[in-house]
Design a protein around this nucleic acid. Structure first.
Length: 598
RNA sequence: GGCCCCGUAGUUCAAUGGAUAGAAUAGAAGUUUCCUAAACUUUAGAUCCGAGUUCGAUUCUCGGCGGGGCUACCA
């Protein structure tokens, strides 16, 4: 079914024919929301049409406006301001659209699985330390994009690759063996990932001491770093792991197990989940065979020293190593293997979306080219969902300087702040402890999620732990608060007047703010579509805020329940319903849950 | 050096090539017999610089300046 804007476009095309005997393309007709300082609902930008009309912008707009009002029932009036033709749409149009919207479950969502299957990878942690603020942005972004794509109609598979092998976890293993005295999460009361992370840090500290001692004895830094016993031990563990040494593998399994238990808790708090897990330990050997096959087909070439390369200079990139001279894999080799594995695991998979920081943009550009060289169909439909770093006032987070913001701690602080705020305002005295706990998390987590998602992914962002997170202004809690008030109105409305049944509404009751709110809400399907095609949750966050802001302003001076005129009361209550329904759906796509009261 | 991203109110963020560049916060001044004041109203404040394309540029192109990233037979 054509949208209002498409109808207007078509009407303008026809009008150009009638008025100017000119044929124009529908997409040269720009239709946009009329700015609030002017009269009208939709605006046609006339400048591009003057070529067809051979008249001044004002005269062109005049002719078109006159014709449109006469020939279209939907358009009740027009106004020409400079080169802009502002059209007023009959209120009954908005009313009937509103009724349709509130009667639709998940208004604006696409038909489930009506669009191609996509895979979204996010999180991708190393198993040697706990999750931090950077992971929060990654997880919230990846999870939200998954939900958005699903809402748009894609079949979505959420995956993470767990970097469970390598020198990093071996470092933790060495330090735990040497200094751990058999500590476990149970014996220490520490979360598993925290315990393993503690020994990763310990490794680094002891290692530095060793290096310094060696350097004091006259060794050069590079040499010392290599010669240090701890590093040798870590390398030895890695070699033994690769050789499948039972003791090392057992320790590796035990410590990774602790980490997974810890991550599970954090993921549950964050409200994210996955459909399929990939472990690097199971995929790191994939890719070699593919590289060899690529060598046969001529996609890659071998150098004299035996290393294998891909020449991407024709694509404007460099030459890229895909297999070392000793025949071992590099990261890229694994990524090729994993990518192709996933196509095999999920027949019908149309594309993969990788939620990874922007420092790896080059890596993914290369990866997609390599897949293409290997003949993967649709390789260039894959996408690197790149996002900017989260920076602190003192600069980048550095684990060595202890400036890493821990994910668990930050979440806990958010809930705590929500608690303090609510207690201070005296909002929740009559709630049970269990209800309060749920509420504080919804509000606190809503604040941090909204904060991280309202910024376009590609931009790096500043996070000041002390000042950044507000609960007022353009924030998650502001939206939640207005949702809660609207819900409260709806509850009382039902008590007083029974269930809302608005199958017909009187279009004459709306005032300007009300028409504005309705139009904003009816814009939602477009927002969702655009957000999905751009993989950008911030568009949804901004829509939620704008919608809420308009609602909040309106709510301030528009009584609802005590209105005696039934048609007006029902009309206003319908707005409340429309608002809550859409906000709950939209915020849900950001991974934010709404409280019933706060 | 080469390549990529980003420069918008004091600060944190918006703006498919369109009208007088929007919000929030911090600042100043107000609003509670009324459905939750975590709200609302008023006020002040910005496109890094210079060319070009265009009827029109925060947006596109080029050249500067400033910030970040990538440019490993590391993971």
């Amino acid at each position: 079914m054509p949208t209002l804007d498409q109808n207007i476009q078509a009407a303008v095309v026809l009008a150009c024919k009638k008025c100017f005997q000119a044929t124009i393309e529908a997409n040269t007709v720009q239709v946009q929301q009329t700015r609030k300082e002017f009269e009208g609902d939709r605006t046609v930008v006339v400048f591009p049409l003057t070529r067809a009309s051979q008249k001044s912008p004002a005269a062109t707009a005049e002719d078109l406006g006159k014709y449109l009002v006469e020939s279209h029932d939907l358009i009740s009036a027009y106004q020409v301001v400079k080169g802009f033709l502002n059209l007023t749409i009959v209120p009954t149009h908005w009313t009937s659209e509103l009724i349709k919207a509130v009667q639709t479950e998940k208004y604006g969502f696409g038909q489930p699985s009506s669009l191609p299957m996509v895979m979204v990878e996010y999180s991708s942690p190393n198993t040697n330390k706990p999750l931090h603020l950077g992971h929060l942005r990654n997880n919230f972004l990846g999870y939200s994009v998954s939900r958005i794509l699903e809402a748009a109609g894609h079949h979505v598979i959420k995956v993470q690759i767990i970097n469970d092998r390598g020198i990093h976890i071996c470092k933790s293993m060495v330090a735990w063996t040497k200094y751990g005295h058999g500590e476990t999460p149970d014996s220490t009361g520490l979360k598993g990932d925290k315990l393993v992370g503690k020994y990763y840090v310990r490794f680094d500290q002891e290692y530095k001491k060793e290096v310094k001692a060696l350097m004091d004895r006259g060794m050069k830094e590079d040499e010392a770093k290599n010669a240090a016993e701890l590093m040798q031990a870590a390398r030895d563990y890695l070699a033994r792991w690769e050789a499948n040494d039972p003791d090392v593998v057992a320790l590796w399994k035990k410590m990774n197990g602790w980490v997974y238990d810890g991550f599970a808790v954090t993921y549950a708090e964050m409200g994210v989940d996955f459909d399929q897990l990939y472990y690097e330990s199971e995929t790191y050997l994939l890719g070699k065979g593919l590289v060899m096959r690529g060598l046969e087909t001529g996609a890659f070439y071998k150098r004299d020293d035996g290393s294998v390369w891909a020449d991407l200079t024709a694509e404007g990139l460099d030459e890229k190593l895909v297999l070392r001279k000793d025949g071992t894999s590099v990261y890229m080799t694994q990524d090729i293997g994993t990518a192709i594995q996933r196509y095999e695991d999920f027949p019908g998979l149309d594309r993969q979306i990788y939620t990874v920081g922007n420092e790896q943009e080059y890596h993914f550009k290369v990866l997609f080219k390599l897949l293409k060289l290997l003949g993967v169909e649709g390789a260039d439909r894959n996408r690197h969902l790149s996002y900017g770093m989260v920076e602190l006032p003192e600069g980048k987070m550095k684990s060595r300087e202890g400036t890493v913001v821990d994910a668990d701690e930050l979440l806990a602080e958010m809930a705590e702040t929500a608690k303090e705020m609510a207690t201070e305002l005296g909002k929740v005295e009559d709630l049970s402890e269990a209800e309060k706990a749920v509420l504080f998390k919804r509000v606190g987590y809503g604040a941090i999620k909204y904060f991280l998602l309202k910024v376009s992914p590609q931009k790096s962002m500043m996070f000041d732990p002390k000042a950044s997170i507000d609960f007022i202004g353009n924030t998650g809690p502001f939206i939640q608060f207005n949702f809660v008030r609207a819900k409260s109105v709806l509850r009382k409305s039902e008590e007083l007047y029974g269930a809302l049944t608005a199958s017909t509404l009187d279009a004459s009751v709306w005032d300007q703010p009300e028409l504005r709110i309705i139009q904003l809400g009816l814009h939602w399907p477009n927002v969702l579509k655009q957000s999905a095609s751009e993989c950008d949750p911030s568009l949804i966050a901004n829509h939620c805020y704008e919608f809420t802001k308009a609602y909040s302003r309106w709510y301030q001076d528009h009584p609802i329940l005590q209105i005696e005129d039934e048609s007006l009361r029902v009309a206003r209550t319908t707005i409340c319903y429309f608002f809550t329904q859409q906000i709950e759906d939209a915020m849900g796509l950001l991974g934010i849950q709404m409280p019933e009261r706060m």
